[in-house]
Amino acid sequence: MIRFIFCLLFIFSAKISFANLAYITNEKDNTVSVIDIKKNKVIKTVEVGQRPRGIIMSKDGKLVLICASDDDRVEVREAKTLKLKYYLPSGPDPELFILSPDDETLYIANEDDAMVTVVDMNDKMIIDDIPVGVEPEGMGLTNDGKVLVNTSETTNMAHFIDTGTLDILENVLVDARPRVAMFTPNDKEVWVSAEIGGTVKVINPSTKEVTHTIGFEIPGVNEESIQPVGVRHTNDGKYTFVALGPANRIAVIDQKSKELIKYLLVGQRVWQLAFTPDQKTLLTTNGVSNDVSIIDVEKLKVKKSVKVGRFPWGVVISPES
């Protein structure tokens, strides 16, 4: 009977058109919710592996990759139907990952095991494990894919890795519990958010020096609940958006001057962020209120929130097809 329902679901799902879709992993439901961004509506929910967290897409938009953390593997699904194509091996407890610009290599942060696992997407085999700090999480890549930055939550470092030799180039101490590393569009800076430290550090990738430390103060919000996680830069170099966790706000920062422009109130415990390809819309995952906030980037206003599954964690949006 259950199998029958599943089959129905797959048949049904195949009919849905493919454009401007956002995929949200629901950590506690073991599902992925698919939102049609034009309609601001969940159009389907698909069961996936256990404890899905990180989610990304291939550059051509054909594949969706999901970290099934408690299954210790990465699921590769067809973006159109979310049908499972195959599994990729990963180390234990994969959390976040990133694909090389040519979609050939996958770098996975294995939270339980202090390793960045490198997987060949063609052979579907592990090429190497790079020992990094304890509880690796954030992954950032330069546009040319030559330098990878990984953050380790307990070691409190940003590790710069040469993707050619898979050697660590340098380790930069940041504030407590770094969660996300994100290069600016021109690759001249990498921004690292520290959840417990409550800051974002801006690092110059050539000198490996911290050039700015951005702190946050929100009237009426306890300092301890300001916990920066997700970071996204606009390509025009204007804004950077930082998700502030249980402060329930997104900080909008001037990418050049590093000054705060404003705070946007979103749902509870906001973690990850994603832009639409035209960068006119930003989506946030709000883990405690179980919804996704949709932000108008030009007006810097929250447009709507959409209910998804329990503990929405990661979000990815399909490229323009």
Binding site: G133, T154, T155, M157, I168, N171
Partner: peptide, 8 residues
């Protein structure tokens, strides 16, 4: 954990 950090 300290050693992992210490190594770097």
């Amino acid at each position: 954990d300290n050693l992992t950090t210490g190594r770097f």
